[in-house]
């Protein structure tokens, strides 16, 4: 594993941070990034499908990243990660700062991806959330593994 070029591995593993970071001026710059690093043209059709699914629309592409709510930022960061479907998706408490509505949107998208064969490793503090979606649940307390449950 350590022999492989990390850049290649990272392209197959998506990672969403607890606090999403959007850079530059507009949302579009962020959407273009995954395409730019692959020397590909931005696929606006795909972008708009993803925007739609997370209850955003094409007009957001021109939005200033500084004027977005936390929920919008997290959804756009998720889209940025999903433009090229990863094999594995790592999520680090991505819904902990979101309201119920945003949380539901994000959760639905993740469930959909999982059904399509994407492996999800989801770190969360919410017991309800983990029990609702996980097939295997690894509980950690005070840095120690507490239990491993197979739920589904």
């Amino acid at each position: 594993m350590l022999e492989i070029d990390p850049v290649k591995i990272r392209k197959k593993i998506g990672f969403c941070f607890q606090e999403p970071i959007l850079w530059g001026d507009t949302v579009e710059e962020n959407i273009k990034f995954p395409y730019d690093i692959r020397n590909q043209k931005t696929d606006y059709k795909k972008t708009s499908v993803l925007l739609d699914r997370l209850h955003l629309d094409n007009s957001y592409l021109k939005h200033d990243v500084k004027n977005l709510s936390g929920g919008e930022k997290q959804r756009i960061a998720l889209i940025r990660t999903l433009l090229f479907k990863p094999e594995v998706l790592l999520l680090d408490e991505i819904t902990s700062a979101l309201d119920d509505n945003n949380t539901e949107l994000v959760e639905n998208e993740i469930v959909r991806l999982n059904r399509k064969g994407v492996t999800i490793l989801w770190v969360t503090h919410s017991d309800t959330q983990s029990r609702k979606y996980a097939s295997k649940l690894l509980s950690i307390q005070d840095g120690q593994i507490k239990s491993l449950e197979v739920l589904k």
């Binding site: 850049v7 990272r10 998506g14 530059g24 690093i37």
Partner: peptide, 20 residues
């Protein structure tokens, strides 16, 4: 730091991740 790490996590090489 987090911006650079996010770019790396998206599969960017170190040059595109540092370009800005």
């Amino acid at each position: 730091k987090v911006e650079v790490e996010t770019k790396l996590s998206l599969g960017a090489d170190i040059l595109p991740a540092s370009m800005d």
